[in-house]
Write a protein that binds this DNA or RNA. Structure first.
Length: 830
RNA sequence: GCCCGGAUGGCGGAAUCGGUAGACGCGGAGGCCUCAAAAGCCUUUGCCGGCAACGGCGUGCGGGUUCGAGUCCCGCUCCGGGCACCA
């Protein structure tokens, strides 16, 4: 499109200047108040796509806006540079992941510079940097020392063809391996875990004070999944343990108040007592179910439910009975795959009257149903089934007559007094499995010695780095595991032969503390100076995609707390991200725009055709920043429209300066008032992240000034200068290049527009001079009258009742009521 | 299944506290400029009826509260997202 200025030349000029002058570099001892603006550091996938552009446009706006408000703004950038795509590319092309990754980083960085986004590049960090790896490993060892890291068996997806563990994402919907096509099974393997569960309560409570979108808080709460209830023993009938006491099956329930309604009990197929408690005549059926459950993937189990595979096939009797401690009654003990070993105790009480799954199970196995809560009137007639609501306790011995919450409390007290069990809180949240059988990640700094077992690599031998002379084979195995030079080592303790851990850490570990390193990426003796971290943290504005709403944000919250508790981040607040903004995603034809879907519209063509400012303006203007938007046939036209707006802006401000001086006319007054209203409105829009309306106001204001410039007696010099300056200052965070250039032309020799203070507005001038009083009759608009904003109720009513259109509508009837809301509205009720 | 969002002109969206529905932009229509085109500028543009003044209808659907509802309440429909046997 034809533009009145050389867009590319102007944009490159300012990009060079910001970079060369280090305009957005900040020191840790900067006397201005600190402000930390951060976009989630990206995985380097190549040149920026529209999602990046959107993200960094918002981030850059915040950086420049806060700087103009007098803050020292920390605006760092880095790369989440470890990860699977680079490894897959290595297998495909033979290129080392480092070479591949660094090429992608350079591309993304070039796009950002071309966008005009500004950072303190001295602080750039990458997760594959040996310095970063070293501190990652130091932290892992500190976690280990403190008992926050441990090694345990975990059921993992195992592909017999590839002889390796697969991530859940690598298992197809039909339960086969995406690479070999073999049926994936479950296997218990030794893996490394971080003990995030010991922070479960704190992670839950901390959410309350955060300025995060509610839906993200809700997602985190559900993910942590705290449930309060009781754990207690069901003594087994007819069995005696080696110490002479009867063995017991321990169960967890959130509804101890329903215990009198227990008519059976169920253990998970993987429960350790299954072997002991299965009688010979039931062994065959039990073994069959256990085998089926062992082979089944999570997906298959879920699919079974969806396809309506009945509970008859999913549960079998063990032949053994257990005693209900509440009434001493024996109930049959089953195993069933709907009970999960990983949650609670792996065993439950079966209360069909108050739980849908138990109800369905009881129906199939012809087990009795005993109600312990009286359902509301008409419940049985409406279909009956399990009733989970509140009501009077019945058939429940000492709990009869109580309501559910009280009965729950009483039941727990009883269990504790009688010694059967106690109050217990359970979480859905599991410990964080951080082992990955991959090459392109941070090596876990551990050695396995025949004599000494698990031995941490001594600090002076860190970082443990993966060797470069590795072979990438398309068999799913990490090249580290068969690299003899890496794996074979000596024990740091006894000097004997030992094997190195060949697993690497989940890349979410890298991203769990990078924001702390950004505060001080310069220190060499500590991961970061805690004083620098305490100065900048918490992040004042964290911007990133909603896809990280659970895992990354939860892990980072956990890690920050753990680092504080380990003494590595003394003085830092426990919540790393004070405010989190989840930007909406860009979709095309109904699905997310992404490289893997092949529906990418790259920004580079727009940089050339309309420029970075127009593309930025488009992303700000097209809709609310937290909502998704669809890239359609029309999108290009909207981007062109944003370019047209910038052309109009250029022509308006680049025209000969007005020369009329002296006493301002009425119209001059109107322009001045509009200017101050404009400053006020855009400021409040930007504060509440309403970027699209902020842009709309700028367009409105340009339209107004264009009309004024074309008026008969010409614009007033002083009034115009004030309006033009306000326009440039307000637009500076949104479209930085054109505003910098126009400001320089209007104010040669003065500091750049981005070094100026955000313009103040005069509240007196920003007030409306007159407002439209809407006059309604019976709620329908009949007239509009321009009135003084300070009009009182009496005067407003008098004006309204005198309006001819009101008299017409009333047709002589007296009004029965008049609602007056000065200065906006009078409603006459006839 | 449960939990969260959302639905407003031909399109993206605005309406911040229950008080003028449709700001701003895109697209469309008409005009100016031009030999012509591009660019630019001006007018107009929710729907229906009417030459017009004007009138009626209108924020996914059905009810309700209110002087007044896009906004609040109840019951649905559809779309998007999260979790998914968590006892």
């Amino acid at each position: 499109m034809a533009q009145p200025y050389d867009v590319t030349a102007v944009e490159e000029k300012w990009q060079r200047r910001w970079r060369e002058e280090g305009t957005y570099e900040v020191e840790n001892d900067d006397p201005r108040p600190p402000y930390y603006a951060l976009c989630m550091y990206p995985y380097p996938s190549g040149p920026a796509h529209q999602g990046h552009i959107r993200n960094y446009t918002f981030g850059d706006l915040v950086v420049r806006y806060r700087t103009m408000h007098g803050y020292a703004v920390l605006s760092p950038f880095g790369f989440d540079s470890f990860g699977l795509p680079a490894e897959n590319a290595a297998i495909r092309t033979g290129t080392h992941p480092r070479v591949f990754t660094e090429a992608r980083m350079a591309e993304l960085k070039a796009s950002l510079i071309r966008l005009g986004a500004v950072y303190d590049w001295r602080r750039e960090i990458t997760s594959h940097d040996p310095v970063y790896i070293r501190w990652n490993q130091v932290m892992f060892l500190r976690f280990l020392e403190a008992g926050l890291a441990y090694r345990a068996k975990a059921p993992v997806n195992w592909c017999p063809g590839c002889q390796t563990v697969l991530a859940n994402e690598q298992v197809l919907a039909d339960g086969t391996c995406e690479r070999s096509g073999d049926l994936v099974t479950k296997r218990d393997l030794e893996q490394w875990f971080l003990r995030i569960t010991s922070y479960a309560d704190e992670l839950l409570d901390g959410l309350d004070g955060l300025e995060w979108p509610d839906r993200v808080k809700v997602m985190q709460r559900n993910w942590i999944g705290r449930s309060e209830g009781a754990e207690f023993d069901l003594p087994v009938l007819g069995h005696t343990a080696t110490d002479g006491s009867p063995p017991a099956v321990r169960v967890f329930t959130t509804r101890p108040d329903t215990s009198f309604g227990m008519t059976f009990a169920v253990m998970a197929p993987e429960h350790p007592l299954v072997d002991v408690l299965t009688t010979p005549e039931h062994r065959e059926a039990v073994d069959e179910l256990r085998q089926r459950a062992a082979v089944a993937t999570e997906r298959e189990r879920t699919a079974a439910v969806e396809e309506g595979v009945g509970y008859d096939k999913r549960g079998v009797f063990t032949g053994t009975s257990v005693t209900n401690p509440f009434n001493g009654e024996p109930v049959p003990l089953y195993i069933a795959d709907y009970v999960l070993m990983a949650y609670g105790t792996g065993a439950i009480i079966g209360v069909p009257a108050e739980d849908e799954r138990d109800f369905a199970f009881a129906a199939v196995h012809q087990l009795p149903v005993i109600r312990t809560t009286r359902p509301p009137e008409g419940f049985e007639e409406a279909g009956g089934g399990a009733y989970r609501g509140d009501g009077e306790k019945i058939n429940s011995g000492f709990l009869n007559g109580l309501d559910v919450p009280t009965a729950k409390e009483r039941a727990i007290e009883w269990l504790e007094t009688e010694g059967f069990g106690q109050r217990k809180v359970n979480y859905r949240l599991r410990d964080w499995l951080v082992s990955r059988q991959r090459f392109w990640g941070c090596p876990i700094p551990i050695v396995y010695c025949e004599n000494d077992g698990i031995v941490p690599v001594p600090l002076d031998q860190l970082p443990v780095l993966a060797p470069d002379d590795v072979e990438f084979r398309p068999n799913g195995q990490s090249p580290l595991s068969f690299h003899e030079g890496f794996v074979n080592t000596t024990c740091p303790r006894c000097g004997g032969p030992a094997r190195r851990e060949s697993d690497t850490m989940d890349t979410f570990v890298d991203s769990s503390w990078y924001f702390l390193r950004f505060c001080d990426p310069f220190s060499t003796d500590v991961p970061f100076d805690p004083r620098a971290a305490a100065h900048w943290m918490p992040v004042d504005n964290y911007i990133g995609g909603i896809e990280h709403a659970i895992l990354h944000l939860l892990y980072a919250r956990f890690f920050t707390r753990a680092l504080i508790d380990l003494g590595l981040a003394t003085g830092v607040g426990r919540e790393p991200f004070k405010r989190y903004f989840a930007q909406g995603l860009i979709r095309m034809d109904g699905s997310k725009m992404s490289k893997s879907r092949g529906n990418l519209i790259t920004p580079s063509a727009y940089f050339e055709r309309v420029g970075a400012d127009a593309l930025r303006l488009f992303h700000l203007f097209v809709g609310p920043p937290d909502e998704n938007f669809d890239w359609t046939d029309q999108t290009d036209e909207i981007i062109e429209g944003c370019g047209r707006f910038l052309s109009r802006l250029w022509r308006l401000l680049d025209a000969d300066a007005p020369t009329r001086r002296g006493k301002p006319t009425e119209r001059d007054g109107a322009v001045r008032r509009a200017t101050h209203r404009f400053i006020q409105a855009v400021g409040s829009d930007l504060e509440r992240w309403s970027f699209n309306t902020a842009v709309a106001r700028c367009m409105e204001f340009v339209n107004l000034l264009t009309r004024d410039a074309a008026s008969d007696d010409g614009p007033h010099a002083g009034v115009t200068r004030e309006a033009h300056d306000a326009l440039l200052l307000v637009l500076a965070p949104m479209v930085p290049h054109i505003t910098a250039e126009l400001w320089e032309r209007a104010h040669p020799g003065e500091p750049a527009v981005h070094a100026q203070a955000w313009p103040p507005f005069d509240p007196e001038l920003a007030k409306e001079e007159s407002v439209t009083l809407v006059v309604q009759v019976n709620g329908k608009v009949r007239d509009r009258i321009e009135v003084d904003p300070a009009i009182d109720a009496e005067a407003a009513e008098r004006l309204a009742l005198a309006a001819p259109k009101v008299l017409d509508a009333l047709a002589g009837r007296p009004p029965s009521r008049v609602i007056v809301r000065p200065p906006n509205l009078v409603n006459v009720v006839a």
